[in-house]
């Protein structure tokens, strides 16, 4: 169970007291074992939300809880896999060394690491590049390597920041299958994406974030309607985001 309880985050830009409100009074709760999708325009605060969930940054107000304990104690990390947006991996390591590092830091044994490495790289389609240095990887290959890095220790909570960005159509399908796989294994998946059709297909729960605020939430009933074609997520998205922009502009 992941709970955001009226979370706010403001970035301070330099010494000039200029601030950006990135996340404003966000409250969500995500049950264990479900797939949650966060969508929203660029700069909506999706990555910020994810960083708060990983305790990389701290909320100004409110709290983030995983299974009823605050994320700030860090103990939940053992069971978390994270793919950052635009993952930048170490330049001079080979993929195998990177995955070895991922396994060792989670306390896996060498045989388990080797086995998982083989499985995951085959699944993500970069088994051929295991011996290559990461600096020679293309954007999509890096994305795949990042996925392997996140999933290596078989975590029960998977957090993916734009997992499809930079991937070819086959890669997109691979990610979708991967997420469905994880769902089937009863894992919790928290991801954000700009590809609404995939989000719609994969998720049990979707939230639209706009200018740091939660403007709309869809539960599994709404999603069923989307899938049956009665409603369209795209239209709802445009409506929610466009409406909000108008609202915001009025008072100022």
């Amino acid at each position: 169970m992941i709970v955001f309880r009226s979370v706010c985050k403001t970035y301070k830009l330099g010494l000039l007291k200029k601030t950006t409100l990135a996340v404003d009074d966000l409250s969500i709760s995500i049950p264990t074992g479900s797939v949650f999708g966060l969508v929203g325009p660029n700069g909506a605060g999706k990555s910020t939300t994810i960083r708060m969930l990983l305790n990389l940054i701290r909320p100004d107000r409110g709290e983030v809880l995983i299974d009823d304990s605050s994320v700030s104690d860090g103990s939940f990390l053992r069971d978390v896999g994270y793919l950052p947006e635009n993952p930048y991996l170490y330049d001079h390591l080979t993929l195998r060394e990177l995955l070895q590092f991922a396994g060792r830091s989670c306390g896996l044994s060498a045989t388990v690491i080797a086995q998982r490495t083989q499985e995951l790289t085959e699944q993500t389609g970069i088994a051929h590049a295991l011996k290559r240095r990461l600096r020679t990887f293309s954007k999509g290959m890096r994305q795949r390597a990042g996925l392997c890095f996140a999933l290596l220790h078989d975590p029960s909570l998977v957090i993916l920041d734009e997992p499809m960005s930079g991937l070819d159509p086959l890669g997109r399908k691979m990610v979708c299958d991967l997420i469905l796989d994880l769902k089937q294994q009863g894992k919790t998946v928290f991801f954000c994406s700009h590809i609404l059709s995939d989000t719609e297909r994969l998720c049990d729960q979707i939230a639209i974030l706009h200018q740091g605020r939660l403007v709309h939430e869809f539960d599994s009933d709404d999603l069923a309607e989307f899938r049956s074609g009665e409603r369209c997520l795209e239209d709802e998205f445009v409506a929610a985001v466009g409406q909000d922009t108008v609202q915001k502009e009025m008072p100022s």
Binding site: L54, L77, R78, G81, L89, Y90, S105, C106, A150
Partner: peptide, 14 residues
């Protein structure tokens, strides 16, 4: 700078 630390700190590192 390049946010590799996000990767590292998402593993169980204090």
């Amino acid at each position: 700078d390049k946010k590799t630390i996000h990767l590292v700190l998402s593993k169980p590192f204090s």
